[in-house]
Amino acid sequence: MTTTEAEHAAIEAPGEPRGPRLSKLPVYLSVGVIATLWTIPSLGLFISSLREPRSIRASGWWNVFGHLFDATTWTLQNYRTALDQGFSNAFANSLAVTIPAVVIPITIAAFAAYAFAWMEFPGRNVLFVVVVGLMVVPLQMALIPILKIYTAFNVNGTFPAIWLAHAGFGLPLAVYLLRNYMGSLPSSIIESAMIDGADHFTIFRRLVVPLSVPVLASFAIFQFLWVWNDYLVALIFLGNNPKVAVLTQTLATLSGRGEGALNLLPAAAFVTMVLPLVVFFGLQRFFVRGLTAGSVKG
């Protein structure tokens, strides 16, 4: 054991985390209070979603604690009704919008990022700075002109129209993230592949893409959450047609119905949340990286 470690051991009890001066109780207490405050809104909604429609209207969700083990307290009926009333269709629409809107920009951005990192061409630096700069152009700047073009060509309300729009809006961040990552790969491996006679396409496919999986994953998760949770782009480019409406639109419409939809809202809200929550907690570590660089998007 080195001296520093010995000192650590002397100051801190073994296995104790940092900051021994603060006594434990207030720390646990304040963390607990904040965490509880943060959890109550969604927990309350979740409990509501599992209650009888009549009880949702009649009393607050906290009343379940009186009869937790009463069989009549819990039901999946709200989920069934919500899925029947358009939410299963909206779920399929959300998938149909989201998957291509994630995959297309990743492919296009990966090629561009490779060129920015490992190829020489006139205007490379200027183009890249422009691409990075475009990250801060608000989505709102694009809505009116694109809607005009889409309307003129009669493609508004179609899935391909919204795929390409999401691809365009997602590209600056994707190119930025991927280029930074690909540029930091060791040049020696790419040079030696060159010397072995590999062309750019082969190096990209066989070396750079496999090595870039972490950053590809983190962008994919970021873009997935972004597109799945998007309301604005869907509202403008898919319009009010319930046949193609995605989950966020359907939920917003339902919430506009007020007291009449009270029993369906909690279950419907959780239908919209289930996939992002699974993706989010399953792949959290990839997500944090994308988050740091990415939240200026859109």
């Binding site: 963390v31 309301y231 809202l265």
Partner: peptide, 29 residues
């Protein structure tokens, strides 16, 4: 940062969870 490892990651997950929820979903919540 001063909690034990498990308590820390559990507490952080609870604060982090809303990040996965859409703004429309949060409005309903």
């Amino acid at each position: 940062d001063r909690l034990s490892k498990h308590a820390e990651s559990a507490a952080k997950s609870l604060i982090f969870l809303p990040m996965a929820i859409s703004f429309v979903g949060a409005s309903v919540v």
